[in-house]
Design a protein around this nucleic acid. Structure first.
Lengths: 191, 191
DNA sequence: CGACCCATGTAAGCAGTTACATGATTGC
DNA sequence: GCAATCATGTAACTGCTTACATGGGTCG
């Protein structure tokens, strides 16, 4: 019952790149994969403990200038489990997109709210897009002088591309929608 | 703590269109809004009970040919709560897109798996797109001879449009990605 | 007579979120 | 002196999923 924790594998993946502390894992999520994955401390630390018990990761404690740091390293077993999970077809999540749910029932609220909401969404998407495009161009640079044939670079590049294409299509949809909602507004005013 | 149940409002929305049984609510979700919202019985029935207690909905029991049917109708209070919820800016969910998470770490698995996965994804998206386009054209027909100026029709149309645009961009991304992964494959074979 | 739709529900249980708690260091 | 960043964790809580349980009707 209940779904298997994906956090486990997300953490394993992050640790596969290099050893990190719980704090670092969170930072990596926020900085590098936030547009398609998120984690929070309240989940990372307990899962890390569990992973250690299962011997999928190993803990080493560093003390630097009175600061305690628990650094976790993926084990051979952990790596195997990660690869096994990666090999399984990802499941398609049950959709739960609140924005569209509200849109679907927006006949009960004023068109002005809806239009403003769509405009805010465009602004937001454009900001995100600019940000992703920064990441994209840096990724492309790295990709261009990749002497080690690191396929990881390509895969990371792909996920950013997804974000950009997705934002572009969302922006287009918002624009299209604004004009439709505006025509609803005009119709209503005529009545 | 923990987020407020969105199921409550989703059910309220569905009942705002017309009274329905729990079974019918589930059907409506599966048939009409599945591409951006899903519910299941194990959640619908308990929430329905709670909504009844809060007097956001009213239960009437029908008996037809030995069959029991509990039909729920939204109350005035329920309608108010729905409108209030609709008026609040929808929150942006924490992204958790397993497909991209696996993609991000795909350097550890064979390119063939990744390519096949992307191809399957294209097929799936195309099927969905064809389906949505059917809904879209029917929605457009209704919209064209809309004598009652029912803005609901337009909003429902918009959500389908979102689905279509989104699928198109996903398909484009998959195609782009396949060619990149194929070039990774070729590089690897050269080594 | 088996499969599938109609119809309602309960129970178990995990996943994940939010808030709380603590404390050192760095830089403005 | 205050805010931000580094750093680790716990507690409470709920939302949602899955599996289970039951039974009648219909159609081929």
């Amino acid at each position: 019952m209940a779904k298997e924790s994906k956090t486990k594998y997300a953490i394993l993946g992050v640790l596969s790149l290099r050893p990190r502390s719980g704090y670092d894992i969170k930072k990596f999520c926020d900085d590098s994969i936030a547009h398609f994955w998120s984690e929070n401390y309240g989940h990372i630390y307990p899962v890390l403990k569990q992973l250690e018990q299962d011997e999928w990761v190993e803990k080493t404690t560093e003390i630097n200038e009175n600061k305690l740091r628990n650094v976790y390293t993926i084990t051979e077993l952990g790596k195997q489990m990660l690869i096994e999970w990666l090999s399984v077809t990802p499941d398609i999540p049950q959709a739960r997109y609140e924005f569209l749910l509200k849109m679907f029932f927006s006949q009960y609220i004023s068109t002005d709210i809806v239009i403003e909401r769509l405009q805010k969404s465009i602004e937001f998407c454009k900001e995100m897009k600019a940000q992703y495009e920064g990441i994209e161009s840096r990724a492309k640079d790295k990709l261009d002088d990749d002497k080690y044939c690191d396929s990881g670079l390509s895969y990371r590049y792909l996920t950013v591309r997804y974000g950009i294409l997705n934002l572009e299509s969302t922006i287009r949809w918002c624009e299209e929608s604004i004009s439709i909602v505006k025509s609803i507004k005009i119709k209503e005013e005529l009545q």
